[in-house]
């Protein structure tokens, strides 16, 4: 757990970046700091590994004050990922990833073995190992940046706008990869972004800052979307937060109707389209979210979302008027 205890940062010149911040970042979870520029989110992140010294207050990792620890030792135990990756251009990809294990005293051979394993872990083929950063795309560089931060297997990771320098398609892939990795690794992660959608997608806990280094709201993504504390948060999370909050509701208790006659099935019972020749436009399972079902029902040519079981066999349909009733009932329950 990372604890901010009444932390203040005033820069020389008198501007207050962080104003009496008290906060707890739960162990094994991703906490995302988000807010407009100049809100103190990056300053707060960089105080955790002492890249910036707080003016007053304490920051503790698992109860230990970071201020009492040797800077370099502290940082070697904390993964650090920054925008544009910041890879060492003069070192190969493999040696970039091997950096921290070598700082910690591992032999070059051991460190490289660990590095090779991590490259695979972040989805980079072994042929990349001997390349130099300039030969990689932005998305590949960022993967290497993540592998480098993970190399010493630190329990805590700091990520400063890790995915903001790549194009949206690549970012989407990196997000998926991140969620998959974090599910396996369960690191305590503090991440900074200016993109509320990214925060909601990746964060277990989202911390919204407002100008002047004040906390606006702390909560799970669902809490922020459904119960924004004030106008600022409501505005910040965006106008379509109603639709987006459907991402957090399961389609499991959505009532389905029997398969209609005009749904064409293949031999294995999988939906193949409508008898008019039009596609079903996709299917959902009980594990999916209401947002996906809504999207399917709206975009379907016949206004019907098709549900399948684990084997891909069609087992029910949801016409959009049923969905509307369900959403209305859901609203009543909240």
């Amino acid at each position: 757990m990372i604890t901010f205890d009444d932390v203040v940062k005033v820069y020389p010149g008198g501007s207050t970046a962080v104003d009496h911040l008290s906060l707890e970042l739960p162990t094994g979870k991703t906490t995302v700091f988000v807010g407009p520029s100049g809100c103190g989110k990056t300053t707060s992140l960089r105080m955790i590994n002492r890249m910036i010294q707080p003016t007053s207050g304490r920051i503790l990792i698992d109860g230990k004050d970071v201020a009492g620890q040797d800077e370099a030792e502290l940082r070697r135990g904390i993964g650090y990922v920054i925008q544009h990756a910041g890879l060492f251009p003069h070192r190969t990809v493999l040696d970039n990833v091997a950096t921290v294990p070598m700082l910690l005293g591992k032999s070059r051979r051991e460190a490289r073995a660990v590095a090779a394993e991590l490259l695979e872990r972040v989805g980079l083929a072994t042929e990349f190992a001997s390349r130099y950063p300039a030969q990689l795309s932005g998305g590949q560089q960022q993967r290497v940046g993540v592998a480098r931060a993970l190399a010493a297997d630190p329990p805590v990771m700091l990520m400063d706008e890790p995915f903001s320098a790549v194009d949206p398609v690549v970012r989407e892939g990196l997000h998926r990869e991140f969620l998959r990795l974090q599910k396996d690794l369960g690191k305590t992660i503090a991440m900074v972004t200016h993109d509320i959608d990214e925060a909601i997608k990746l964060g277990d806990v989202v911390v919204i800052f407002r100008q002047g280094g004040h906390l606006a709201q702390v909560g799970t993504p669902q809490e922020l979307l459904e119960h924004p504390a004030d106008e600022f948060v409501a505005e910040f999370v965006g106008r379509d937060r109603g639709v987006r909050s459907l991402s957090f509701d399961s389609a499991a208790d959505l009532p389905v109707r029997p398969l209609p006659a005009d749904l064409v099935l293949d031999d294995a019972g999988r939906p193949a389209g409508w008898s008019t020749g039009e596609s079903t436009g996709g299917t959902f399972t009980v594990a999916d979210s209401l947002r996906l079902v809504t999207d399917l029902a709206i975009s379907s040519p016949v206004g019907i979302a098709v549900r399948v079981d684990d084997h891909g066999k069609a087992d029910g349909v949801v016409p959009h008027h049923d969905l509307v009733d369900h959403l209305a009932a859901r609203r009543g329950r909240k």
């Binding site: 590994n49 800077e71 070697r76 650090y80 544009h84 910041g86 251009p89 921290v100 700082l103 931060a149």
Partner: peptide, 18 residues
């Protein structure tokens, strides 16, 4: 020098001499 690379080096725990 790219300041981001130097920032990364410090943030990873290199001492000033390193």
């Amino acid at each position: 020098l790219d300041p981001r690379v130097v920032d990364a080096a410090r943030g990873m725990g290199m001492r000033p001499w390193q």
